[in-house]
């Protein structure tokens, strides 16, 4: 599904290398988790994959189902099936959440040559999905992420993901700032989307999310590289012992 080879990324305006040769293979139907210390490059990886400006790829490739992602515009990547749930979801004043969602859904449909979703069909679907995530009608009407609590923003990201039905979902610290109940809701939302044809890359600092979303593979990222990969037990190891031992082991 997602295939990253030897990815090197630096800041566009500065001589600062952030990703120093990332290799990662996420198969369809699998959930991969990435853990790693603050500043190790996890968000950068997710941004570069989804096409954010300000970064320069100096080496390596990233492909979605064999198609080169790095040549595409952000919206083309989205239409191809890539989705990023942001670590810090962006506020857009004056734009209704519902309008935003509908514009996004129809933009992707158009880009794929599919028929647009009618207003009534859209409403029906969005109401059902919002209900599952306990997002009330009021939140759908409010401007995108404006005045949402941290947890509401994260649930809103998952609602977008549920509406857009991407093939490859990247979740960047979607669990941060969630209370216990919200964590369960988000995890249920993600689990509901788990399917044979869909891959997940879940960036997190905590085991507790992985209690709910059982990963197939866990990677440890440090200083711009994946330094260790393993099964779910690797996350437990980090939870108990931190990163020091793993770093030392690799060094």
């Amino acid at each position: 599904m997602l295939s990253i080879k030897n990815l090197h990324v630096k800041l566009e305006d500065e001589d600062k290398q952030i990703l120093k040769g990332v290799n990662l293979e996420v198969e369809a139907g699998k959930v991969h988790a990435i853990m790693g210390p603050n500043g190790s490059g996890k968000s950068t990886l997710s941004y570069v994959l989804s096409g954010k400006g300000g970064y320069e790829v100096t080496d390596g490739t990233a492909k979605l189902e064999g198609v080169d992602l790095l040549d595409m515009e952000p919206e083309e990547r989205a239409a191809a099936g890539l989705f990023l749930a942001f670590q810090y979801p962006v506020e857009i004043p004056g734009v209704g959440n519902m309008t935003f969602l509908r514009t996004a859904v129809n933009a992707q449909r158009k880009a794929r040559g599919e028929e647009e979703m009618s207003a009534s069909e859209f409403l029906k679907v969005v109401r059902a999905k919002a209900k599952d995530l306990q997002i009330d009608a009021e939140m759908l009407k409010r401007p995108v992420n404006m005045g949402f609590s941290g947890g509401e923003k994260k649930r809103n990201e998952i609602l977008q993901m549920a509406m857009l039905e991407p093939k490859m979902c990247i979740l960047d610290e979607t669990d941060s700032g969630l209370d216990v109940d919200a964590m369960k809701l988000v995890a249920d939302g993600v689990n509901a989307l788990r399917s044979e044809g869909r891959g997940f890359l879940v960036i997190t600092h905590y085991q507790r999310l992985l209690d709910h979303i059982k990963p197939d593979v866990v990677h440890i990222m440090s200083d711009g590289r994946i330094i260790k990969s393993g099964g779910p037990e690797l996350a437990l190891d980090v939870e108990h012992n931190g990163y020091a031992d793993i770093k030392a082991e690799v060094a």
């Binding site: 989804s50 096409g51 954010k52 400006g53 515009e73 952000p74 919206e75 990547r77 989205a78 239409a79 989705f83 990023l84 942001f86 979801p89 962006v90 506020e91 857009i92 935003f100 514009t103 996004a104 859904v105 933009a107 992707q108 880009a111 977008q160 857009l164």
Partner: peptide, 16 residues
């Protein structure tokens, strides 16, 4: 730019 990128990452082109 962050707002525009957010929109584009959801599939809207730049003008949209």
């Amino acid at each position: 730019d962050d707002q525009l990128f957010y929109c584009r990452s959801r599939g809207m082109d730049e003008e949209e």
